[in-house]
């Protein structure tokens, strides 16, 4: 691990922080492109595994960046990646927060909401497609994605951990009995 890598981690993630409209899901596609395709710091497999871990553990989805930092450059990488993903967007929220609460209910609030929500939704689907491509070796993972999505729409109250354990269990069973 060297300083150059740490700086690179920061310069890859910090701009994504400012662009992460709709939350962590908007950065999966660009992150995959940067750290797997271009830098080749981690494999597609590791990328997918880290995503799974970040979703199985408590905390916001963007802790995924922390895990990538950890995988690439150890503890220092984890710290730098966390600062890179949280600091820039947090400064924006802090800065805008002052103005925002003073002008509550104004038309431009509504325009921002209406304008940025569909953008975030589109980026979320971009993330889903990126991750689904990494996961789709065979029929079973694709089926799990579809079934979990449908079940979750139908019964939103089912705890996420139940889905994660069932998904993992199914794939393990398929491996063990194949």
């Amino acid at each position: 691990m060297n300083a150059e890598t740490l700086i690179r981690i920061f310069t890859i993630i910090a701009p994504l922080s400012l662009a992460s409209f709709g939350g962590a899901s908007s950065i999966y596609a660009p992150m995959q492109h940067e750290v797997v395709d271009i830098e080749q710091w981690i494999t597609a497999r590791e990328f997918l595994d880290l995503f799974a871990i970040s979703r199985a553990m408590p905390g916001p989805g963007s802790l995924f960046c922390t895990l990538v930092g950890w995988q690439v450059a150890g503890f220092a990488g984890a710290v730098i990646a966390s600062i890179a993903i949280y600091l820039p967007s947090s400064i924006v929220v802090y800065g805008v927060g002052h103005v925002w609460s003073r002008h509550r209910g104004k038309r431009w609030h509504n325009a921002l909401e209406r304008g940025l929500n569909p953008l975030g939704a589109g980026l979320l689907f971009a993330g889903v497609v990126t991750l689904a491509k990494l996961a789709s070796d065979g029929f079973l993972p694709i089926a799990i994605i579809g079934v979990v999505c449908a079940l979750n729409v139908w019964k939103p109250k089912i705890h996420p951990v139940i889905f994660l354990i069932s998904g993992g269990g199914l794939c393990y069973a398929a491996y063990a009995f194949a």
Binding site: F125, L131, I144, G167, Y172
Partner: peptide, 24 residues
């Protein structure tokens, strides 16, 4: 079998993410 299991966990997480997308 650990890697295979992780793919299943990831797939379930992707499914939940997709549901968030449907809602959005």
């Amino acid at each position: 079998g650990f890697q295979e299991t992780m793919v299943g966990v990831a797939a379930a997480a992707i499914g939940m993410l997709m549901r968030t997308g449907v809602e959005a």
